[in-house]
Write a protein that binds this DNA or RNA. Structure first.
Lengths: 317, 317
DNA sequence: TTTGCTCATGAGCAATTACTCATCAGTGGG
DNA sequence: CCCACTGATGAGTAATTGCTCATGAGCAAA
């Protein structure tokens, strides 16, 4: 084999070494012997072939598209966690697929032997997710609800996620004995001053991982449908540029919490720090793309579980 | 994580692990952590992904030595297509390397939007090649088998290339419901007169591109090993100057089809015209040099995919 | 010629991966 | 109900790979 020191020859050698390594499946020692170079040089040629993208790896499996989208999301939004599940082509449900994936992720956290604090929001998607949880014994962990579980009329709220969750997994759980929205900022002050509520809020601030749904606005969004906001209030919010909500906290298209009479009255625990905690948003569907994109842009969340179609729409924004 | 014991779920996991390993470049430890499995299990999933051919590696670099050999072959034999891949110095396999290259070439043809007819032979090499094909949807193309798929005992033949291929790419396919060799020239007449067979033969004659393996003769050649010819028949052929076979058609050292009782009984479709079609022979290895050289000399094929060592031997003849 | 720079090289060592073995759970037949 | 069989698992260990560092060759500028 003629020795050529020019870069063309070197790339040739790299291609040859890479071919022997990846296609022919030989070890670097064998390549070194075949090409009459040292093992280290063979290793360098192989890694050069990879670095120069001479070697193309392809995965022939439906999953690969999802993984690529997840990686793209992770890069673009600087995420700690991104998961994309195949889209249901029928697209009838807003929870099928991501609910199972979210449950799997929750389970992964709960399986940890060291004690952690899991914060959890509310909503249809999260309810569907916790319904997928298998029974577990997790006395070492604590689960804290970020949102109040008292409805407008004093009854328990519609999607009582934390109780469903505590039902499946045996762990200490801390609901929020508050409504979702207070009648005024002053009332919120008072209510948040209760010892029980203060300790729950303090616990939420220390959450190791947080799972939240992403609510879209509009008269068909959860806040209106569930009666927390009137149509006129909602219209006004949208006109002012609001794009979505997490645990009731309204944010705009850049993912900044908006200053409004609504956010002044939200009784929820503040969204835990994205610095110290994984805050994973779970949402899919065309209607949620705007809200989800805004939450990601504003770094309100640093993790996402969504489906293929939604991921594609996010990335094309 | 939802419990899935079925093999589909396991393949999904393998795909995911393989993707994380080869595409995302994670270590097996990281994959294990991400998937909540042990490192050993992650390693197994990765190697399963490789074993199941979910991972396809391709080298995208023209190695100049190979390019030069390819160009020399093209000149000398007046070829439409010549491709030379690096040789595996160990040379243990007769398919590694050219199978991937052949698959890539087949894929290039299949990617064409305009409808084409692809004719395909049989043999170990072609089988290995089509096993490398990724799933594709090609309803516009038609694939026709040049050789019968009925074995000596009436069972399906050993290397049922066309069905493997049709399995990977969704296209209309036309197998040959015949044995490889008929018992007599008269029987061949009768069989070829069937409407189904006639239309397949007519289709083969119109093939836009043809991929065939090159069989060497001798008692270790495929015709003998697979039991189509007895040792004595084979010895006689070799004595009479036969040098190789394509789809069962025996040819001599100048690449001319020999007149023999064998060729009178071959049930295969005639090799498509080299005037109107690309007929690409795929072969490598010292044992095949004579046969391949003869086929090239006689212009039985006008394209070749082989390896470096074989190309050098061909050119030094 | 000397100097300083770049880059390939090989050695040594740490990290990573592959293999073997013993075990165990699930399964289907006797 | 038992038992052989299959296939998954984890531990332990050997093999392989990747990284860092010191060295020296090649080369251009001073």
């Amino acid at each position: 084999m003629a020795k050529r020191s020019d870069s063309q020859g070197r790339l040739d050698d790299a291609a040859r070494a890479g071919w022997l390594y990846y296609v022919a499946g030989r070890t670097q020692d064998e390549i070194a012997a075949a090409m009459s170079i040292s093992r280290q040089s063979a290793q360098r040629l192989v890694s050069l072939a990879v670095a120069e993208r001479l070697i193309k790896v392809r995965l022939d499996h439906p999953i690969s598209a999802c993984l690529e989208l997840a990686e793209a999301l992770r890069q673009r939004y600087d995420l700690k966690h991104a998961e994309v599940v195949p889209s249901d082509p029928a697209g009838v449900s807003t929870t099928v697929g991501i609910a199972e994936a979210a449950a799997a992720e929750i389970e992964r956290w709960l399986k940890r032997p060291d004690p952690i604090i899991v914060a959890i929001g509310t909503g249809r998607t999260l309810k569907a997710a916790v319904d997928q949880l298998p029974p577990m014994e997790c006395p070492q962990h604590r689960i804290v609800s970020l949102t109040g579980n008292i409805g407008l009329d004093g009854s328990a709220a519609f999607y009582n996620v934390i109780f469903s969750m505590a039902d499946a997994i045996k762990a200490r759980h801390f609901p929020m004995p508050l409504p979702v929205l207070c009648s005024s900022a002053e009332e919120r002050e008072t209510l948040h001053d209760q010892a029980l509520v203060r300790s729950t809020i303090a616990l939420g601030a220390k959450a190791d991982v947080t799972f939240v749904g992403i609510g879209e606005l509009g008269v068909d969004g959860p806040l209106c449908v569930d009666g927390f906001l009137g149509r006129d209030e909602m219209m006004k919010l949208v006109e002012e540029g609001a794009a979505g909500e997490i645990c009731g906290w309204i944010f705009d298209r850049e993912g900044r919490l908006v200053e409004s009479s609504i956010n002044d009255r939200v009784a929820s625990v503040p969204i835990p720090s994205r610095e110290t905690s994984s805050v994973i948003g779970i949402a899919q569907g065309r209607k949620k793309v705007t809200a989800l994109g805004a939450a990601l842009d504003g770094r309100l969340i640093n993790g996402v579980i969504t489906d293929e179609a939604t991921a594609e729409q996010l990335l094309s924004m």
